[in-house]
Simulated scan of single mutants.
Amino acid sequence: MPHSTMLQHCNATPPRRHPKVLVILGATGAGKSKLSVDMASTFFPNSEIINSDKIQLYRGLDITTNKMTLSQQLGVTHHLLGQLDPVNSVSPSEFRSLGSAIIADIFARRRLPIIVGGSNSLIYALLVKRFDPDCDVFNGSKPDPVSSELRYNCCFIWVDVFLPVLNEYLNKRVDSMLNSGMLDELDEFFASPEFDSVSETGLKKAIGVPEFKKYLTNDCTNFEEDLYEEAVRNVKENTCQLAKRQMGKIQRLREGKWDLRRIDATAAFKAAMGLDGEKAARIWERQVVETSVKIVNRFLKDE
């Protein structure tokens, strides 16, 4: 659905009764999407997921942006995941309108909204009671104060992974994405007639696009291997830097009195990278999923 059509149907005013909203946040690659689907498909089947990753909002580059595939979604309804036209980029204020309309609709059907994504600026814009687009609570030497007044009754699950372990995983994930066809996908993206019309502040900012552009659009055949290796290094470095920035923003929210329930997924990631899939699955289920389910069950029972 085009942005304009979606925005026409938005009602930024939440329902009179504050709905309960589950929010799963964390750095890129920390397992937010997997946890959300694990919980929604098995433990909270009356829930629907709202994507809050600012790059995954747009249609296209599914491998490069690491969108969950339909099979990985396990039949759970997802909103704003690859649904928007990449010609236009969505501002935090527009996301606030889109997201609040979807939350109101989910709540009206007596279901549970689950907001999932690593773009903490979008999460902040959506959830605070009074959002000022001119304020920046995350960046600069003296960022604006974080507001703790939220317009929804929120339960926050923070999936955290020890940064050196996460960095190792992210590097491996880039290799896996490349083996899954990321390069061909980017090549088609650059060659597409629609490429020039794609917003410079939206899908073109996906990690992988600027890093591989020189390699994939270079007419010269010399040093191509060097250009490829440089692009891969830059993708890995920029992905790790993104994770670090996201962790810093989560700490800002915590310092701003947001009640974030931290779930440590480090052990599951270590087991997975040790190629012990069964052990990793057991640890994930016991330490991440079961702990999160207990937190959410208490939240839902509280009046």
Score class of each variant (00 low, 15 high):
K20M: 05
S148C: 11
F95D: 08
L35A: 02
P2R: 15
M6Y: 09
W284Y: 05
L178K: 10
E94F: 08
D62P: 01
K129Q: 12
N234A: 07
S52D: 10
I207Y: 07
L186Y: 09
A231D: 11
Y58F: 11
P2Y: 14
I157P: 00
C240I: 04
G274N: 12
I123K: 02
E278H: 07
L163H: 10
Q8K: 12
F190S: 09
R233N: 12
G117F: 01
V146C: 01
V128P: 06
V289I: 14
L163W: 06
N153I: 05
G118T: 00
T239S: 06
T5N: 11
S41A: 13
T28I: 09
R130W: 00
V235K: 03
R254I: 02
N153L: 12
F189I: 01
R245S: 13
Q8Y: 03
E211R: 12
M273R: 02
R252W: 04
L203S: 01
E278T: 07
I24V: 05
D132F: 06
T5G: 04
D62I: 07
V37W: 06
S176C: 03
Y215K: 14
D259V: 11
L22Y: 03
E285A: 02
R151M: 07
K257N: 02
I55M: 11
P19Y: 01
P133N: 06
K249C: 05
K67I: 14
